[in-house]
Design a protein around this nucleic acid. Structure first.
Lengths: 193, 193
DNA sequence: CCTACCGATCGGTAGG
DNA sequence: CCTACCGATCGGTAGG
């Protein structure tokens, strides 16, 4: 006999979404297990049915954040295009993901690994996974060998991540922002794409 | 009669230094009054002799941070020099201050105003004081009018602030970093200043 | 600036 | 996933 229509018995996904939203908006310490639980309709103790600790919850959010970022960037890498266009598209994708309202990706920006010292190594490793992708992208850029590509990567990431703090929907689109940042650094005129 | 040699009876400054260091390194919530007190040789309750609340303590640190940033930048503005050289010097000053080990300035980067909702308005106003200075600086830059100067300012701040997270003493100097960032955006060749 | 303390809140758990 | 709870820690205070 089929299981009768009952309420979804596994709300791990809703819980993870709530956690991501709280961590992203308020940071790690200010996001209490109670607030996270209540915002997805659970009681405080119920979280521990899904995750054994607050740290495990953060780790799960981080993992999903990196997974989404990596997937988004690899999607932009798939079809061949000029390196500068590729950079523009990747930047646009990155900025879109870290400015999205309930983005898992923005947790990587808001919550630094030392917020949870006991898992900071794993958090750092997850960040590095993504940064390695960006490193390869910048290394493939055809620029004068006099420029410091490591620094260039850090400038691009810094400028892009900072958008998270000042972006307001309705003014400039994330695509426009990415296009202008890249244009600013590589002297490309604004293209009316 | 002169007051006899007794232990400094006003350790507000040491307390403020300890608070700045904790806020900068661990954020607002993770910096407990107890830890701040102990790290400057006080007992937890003694902080309240100097400041009435944790929020007041953060506000004082913020104020000093902005004061130092503004003073540092105005110092770079004093003697006349070409706009681009001025930008380079200001960026170098900014980066030096936010990477200094126990910098008040770095608290402005690490602790966002919403960490203390009840004083977030005052915190934001303090940040704005500094950003206004930078706005004027960028507005004076002689660049093609096709570039978005607001975005240019945000890119510069984003790139500069991000240094706080990856800087390691002993590799590149803060001056070199500033010089290369500005060179990267304005196409100036590295000058051997 | 210390002593001694308080109410509130936190992450987490036993048992169902 | 809920009920009922615990020890630890937090920001803050009275009185000196």
């Amino acid at each position: 006999m089929p299981t009768p229509a009952k309420r979804s018995n596994n709300r791990t996904q809703e819980l993870l979404d709530s956690a991501a939203e709280h961590f992203s908006k308020h940071g790690y310490r200010a996001s209490t297990m109670r607030k996270i639980a209540v915002s997805c309709g659970m009681l405080p103790g119920s979280i521990y049915y899904h995750y054994p600790s607050k740290e495990a919850l953060l780790l799960a959010v981080y993992e999903e954040g990196v997974r989404q970022l990596v997937a988004g960037i690899q999607e932009q890498m798939e079809n061949p295009k000029p390196p500068l266009q590729r950079l523009k598209d990747v930047m646009a994708q990155h900025i879109a993901m870290i400015t999205a309202p309930s983005a898992y990706a923005s947790v990587l920006i808001r919550v630094m690994p030392d917020a949870a010292p006991e898992i900071s190594d794993q958090l750092i490793e997850l960040r590095d996974q993504y940064e390695t992708l960006l490193k390869n992208l910048v290394d493939d850029l055809p620029v004068s060998q006099s420029v410091n590509k490591s620094l260039m990567r850090l400038v691009l990431i810094g400028a892009a991540n900072h958008v998270h703090y000042w972006y307001q929907p309705g003014t400039m689109s994330t695509d426009e922002i990415a296009s202008q940042i890249v244009g600013m650094i590589f002297g490309t005129e604004n293209d009316p794409t």
